[in-house]
Design a protein around this nucleic acid. Structure first.
Length: 588
RNA sequence: GGACCUGUGGUGCAGCCUGGAGUGCACGCCGCCCUGUCAAGGCGGAGGUCGCGGGUUCAAAUCCCGUCAGGUCCGCCA
């Protein structure tokens, strides 16, 4: 974490007001008269003849010595002029990069006074996030946020450089876009010139970038803001930033190579180490082994299949197509109420129940179900999961999808460390299903989006058994977080019609929603594919943060408010009138 | 829409289970002292709607109900 922030770009730090940055001062500057500017981090008065002022800017802290008293207080903004000199023997400070020197004979000019800050601006002072967000401009002054935002800038720089090197051209797409009722809920913008009509903020530049392919751009990328009016989470804000890209005359392998190059470059810049090639697994394998489509490969333990063991079993709870097990090391110590809570979690996810077995000495099992097991089953549970004394084995018996998903959720909840901890484990997840269940009308739901190209082997399944069809869609996953996803797009109108038909979207409906895209495709669309991944998430993991708010300068709270600006807020009646908008109060 | 956690001087906490004077700790703040500190040190001081409203009780930071705010998660996020 040291190679990144000092940017490789050399730039002029001296200005008309300062000669050097606080953190830059070293022995080589001894003897020079310098001017530095910054905030007063701390003042130490020793009577009326000696005072120390620790001056801070984004590069660090330098100790300034004043021969006399000084009336500066914490966070005053000052310009200090003095002579760089070695610290007296025995007073060097190893904790500071500048600790071998100090600025002596200082003259302090106050540029701004400051109220006492509501909280300490050192990294070590822990402050509730609510307070940090209310005074975000002070929080940003702290070293951790300075580091995070500068790391983010370095990552952006690496991404741009990688895309540029690979022949991609940066194109900006509209922020004011047309409503396309499909997918994530959009933010709506009323039109002043066309009262009663609305723009929306793009949930992603998806359609725009496909039109750029029709437009012959060949390789497009953008560091793009996306807006989705959906509920917020630790890894989700209304607004987030993606590296968005699309390329023509490519296969999914080409796109994955482009993305890998960019991500590995960014990782190298951020961590100093270039990760190895990113492994690939199929969606089915991910679900079967880890129970999720975004597996955390830092966790060694996988799901164990016990279907064969219980195929002929008398145990009625395990009479199901699939029986899956998950070992929780040292889980035998879980209390009964904890196990009950886990059972509730499993049921909330759709399981009929959750069987648990505490593994005791000599392979004995402690479980309400133990008395129903025969010796072979008892042994099988322990050997198949490689459980040892003190471990816990959780078992779910149901349809395949449900069994693996329930245990996958428990695996993530019980075994995954915080996302930013430990090594970074990337994985490509391939061959997603085309459709993910059916809607109320019995029509399949697009797993990715309706322009996703089916898997070449599964074209026929579209008509015969669409829910079994795979797509050419792929996700990039890091430590259990979905970084992003992409797909090969459909560029042939006939195939697009088939997919719309499978989705239960009529020709008229398709024309109404996506007419401009379908029209473009009738004018010569190159085969194309693309990807987009979340930069907030990537940088959060690089910094070791467990929420993307730590890498966003001005994030919103979980309820979508801004504690600093008080947004969202009402607007004047005249503003509403101009927009042709009337507000209503919802009945409670 | 739902579940759970949190809310006590400026900040971070303890106190709550088991009701008894807003009682305590650390940091910060203000004043005085202090010529080599660096999370300086010494002495003194100020600072409180215990998120808000209601209820129970002789008595509520503490118990109950509601509500607001923040967080984690489910739903949602093609």
């Amino acid at each position: 974490m040291s190679t990144n922030n000092e940017s490789s770009v050399s730039h002029r730090t001296a200005t008309s007001m300062r000669d050097l940055l606080c953190g830059e001062l070293r022995s080589e500057h001894i003897g020079q008269v310098v001017r530095v500017c910054g905030w007063v981090a701390r003042r130490r008065e020793h009577g009326e003849h000696l005072a120390f002022v620790d001056l801070r800017d984004h590069t660090g802290i330098i100790q300034c010595v004043v021969d006399g008293s000084t009336d500066v207080r914490s966070e005053y903004v000052v310009q200090i002029t003095g002579t760089v000199r070695p610290r007296p023997e025995g007073t060097l400070n190893d904790a500071l990069d500048t600790g071998e020197v100090e600025i002596g004979d200082c003259r302090v000019e106050i540029l701004s006074v400051a109220e006492p800050p509501p909280f300490g601006l050192e990294d070590r002072s822990e402050v509730d996030e609510q307070i940090r967000l209310r005074y975000r401009y002070l929080d940003l002054r702290r070293p951790r946020m300075q580091r995070n935002l500068r790391l983010r800038a370095a990552v952006n720089r690496a991404l741009r450089s990688a895309m540029d090197r690979q022949g991609f051209v940066e194109v900006e797409t509209p922020i004011l876009w047309a409503p396309t009722p499909e997918g994530a809920r959009e933010f709506t913008v009323p039109s002043r010139l066309h009262n009663g009509s609305f723009y929306v903020l793009p949930q992603s530049p998806q359609l725009a970038k496909q039109l750029l392919m029709v437009g012959g751009i060949d390789r497009y990328y953008q560091i793009a803001r996306c807006m989705r009016d959906e509920d917020l989470r630790a890894d989700r804000q209304f607004e987030f930033t993606q590296l968005d890209l699309e390329a023509s005359f490519v296969t999914q392998e080409d796109v994955m190579a482009f993305v890998s190059e960019a991500v590995l470059d960014a990782a190298e810049v951020a961590t100093g180490v270039r990760p190895g090639a990113i492994p690939q697994i199929t969606w089915h394998e991910a679900m079967d082994r880890f129970g999720v489509d975004k597996p955390d490969l830092r966790v060694e333990i996988e799901l164990t299949d016990l279907s064969a063991l219980f195929a002929e079993s008398e145990v009625r709870a395990f009479a199901a197509p699939v029986v899956k097990a998950l070992k929780i090391p040292a889980g035998a110590a879980f209390t009964r109420s904890k196990l009950d809570a886990l059972t509730d979690t499993a049921k909330a996810l759709g399981a009929k129940g959750l069987a648990w077995f505490r593994v005791q000495d000599a392979g004995k099992l402690d479980s309400p179900l133990d008395r129903f097991l025969n010796e072979q089953e008892r042994e099988g549970i322990v050997t198949a999961t490689k459980a040892e004394s003190g471990d816990l084995v959780l078992v779910v018996a149901d349809e395949w999808r449900l069994s693996v998903e329930v245990l996958g959720a428990l695996r993530a909840q019980l075994l995954s460390p915080p996302v930013g901890e430990g090594e970074a484990r990337y994985v490509w997840v391939m061959d997603f299903p085309m459709f993910d269940g059916v809607d109320g009308a019995g029509n399949p739901i697009s797993a990715h989006h309706p322009f996703t190209m089916p898997h070449p082997e599964d074209f026929e399944l579209l008509k015969t058994d669409p829910l079994k069809a795979r797509s050419q869609a792929y996700d990039l996953v890091l430590n259990g977080w979905e970084l992003g996803s992409g797909s090969v797009r459909i560029h042939r109108p006939d195939l697009q019609s088939e997919v719309f038909s499978a989705l239960g979207i009529s020709e008229e409906e398709a024309e109404k929603r996506f007419g401009f895209l379908l029209g473009a495709f009738r004018h010569g669309a190159p085969p194309h594919a693309g990807f987009a991944f979340g930069i907030d998430r990537l940088v959060a993991i690089f910094t070791g943060a467990d929420t993307i708010r730590e890498v966003i300068a001005f994030p919103k709270t979980q309820s979508g408010t801004d504690l600093m600006t008080q947004a969202p807020s009402t607007i004047s009646n005249s503003a509403l009138l101009e927009l042709g908008i009337r507000t209503i109060t919802k009945e409670s």
